[in-house]
Simulated scan of single mutants.
Amino acid sequence: MAFPRNGLTSAAPADTRLKLKIARKWTSAEGIVAIDLTASDGAPLPAFTAGSHIDLFLPGGFTRQYSLRNDPRERHRYAIGVLREPGGRGGSAYVHDRLNVGDLIDTSRPRNAFELDETAPFSLLLAGGIGVTPILAMAYRLSSLGRDFEFHYCARSADRLAFRDEIEASAFAGKVRFHLDDGPEVQRLSLDRLLAYRPAGAHLYACGPSGFLDAVVSRAKPGWPADAVHREYFANAAPKAQSDQPFRITLASTGRSFDVASGRSIVEVLADNGIDIPVSCEQGICGTCVTRVVSGEPDHRDLVLTDRQRADHMTLCCSRALSAELILDL
């Protein structure tokens, strides 16, 4: 999956980036290209965990985040899938139309804001559209560990099912169910039936469009505890909470304070004062800028933190304050 970004500072300084080669590129489904990235010198790549993503630093200042879909045991490649977004700002179009096999591209090292609990006795994996990418990596990992799981993959039609051949040839093919909205293979997913019962200790993982994820979360609420439901959004389409009232931030380590005006983010204000906070999505969906709150009441506007994490953490890229001041662990 991909996260759009509007372009402040980079999440990965230039000296920590990887220079990778486009080793393979092909059309996996309607509107979706698959890309394999390898080290330009053929060396093993940094390890990653299921649910991880990488940043691609594209010409023109575009940075896009794409989930890794391959088996985390692999060290020779990072495999991603990219959906063409007609209404986007050009990042996906560049990947589709201008990246070619043999090209070199800068990327970040893998990061994970959608971690898999490998100890759970049962995992329920739900994917909508291009949201299959991190879910597929989770399936590979759970299969290699011998864990019990089910994998449900929803798409509009069969020609939009990315990586279908790969899934059907996998060791976990028997655990996968495809759910289609139209065509000769129509079989829609019933979330009410699927989520009516939670096996003991089970965890739920979902990735896809916001409407799909909202439906999953709402159907899961009656029987699934919040800390057992994990989701990753494409973009933060959540309505803005509360107001954009000005507030003050104070750094716990130095006591320095700064005013955050209406319409400005904490990250922007800190950058103006020489304090660089790593950011990536700038929408509260990747977790890069999560920071501990020492005191004060945040106005949470992210889609990455759990309720438990929100008790004393916040995303600095998009969240604001309900109190007059926030003291941050910086």
Score class of each variant (00 low, 15 high):
A311E: 15
T306I: 02
G287V: 00
I130S: 14
A155G: 07
I105Y: 10
C281Q: 09
V294S: 02
R164C: 07
T250D: 01
D244I: 01
Y66N: 11
S253M: 09
V229H: 01
S157C: 11
R109E: 09
T119Q: 15
F178P: 04
L116G: 00
R69K: 12
A228Q: 11
G174L: 06
P13A: 07
D181H: 05
I54S: 00
E166N: 05
V269N: 04
I285P: 15
G128N: 07
A252L: 05
C281V: 00
L305W: 02
H152W: 02
S143Y: 12
Q65A: 06
A321V: 14
A11S: 13
P86Q: 09
N6T: 03
D276M: 09
L161N: 04
T63V: 07
G284H: 08
H300Y: 10
P222Y: 10
A173N: 11
F3C: 00
R160N: 13
S67D: 10
R141F: 05
A200Q: 00
A113V: 02
N100R: 11
V132E: 15
V95W: 02
A169I: 06
V293T: 02
A238S: 15
D312Q: 07
G284C: 04
L83T: 01
P225N: 03
R156W: 06
A237H: 14
T49V: 05
A39M: 08
D307A: 12
Q309T: 08
L104F: 11
A196C: 14
A321S: 07
D41A: 08
Q283H: 14
D55P: 08
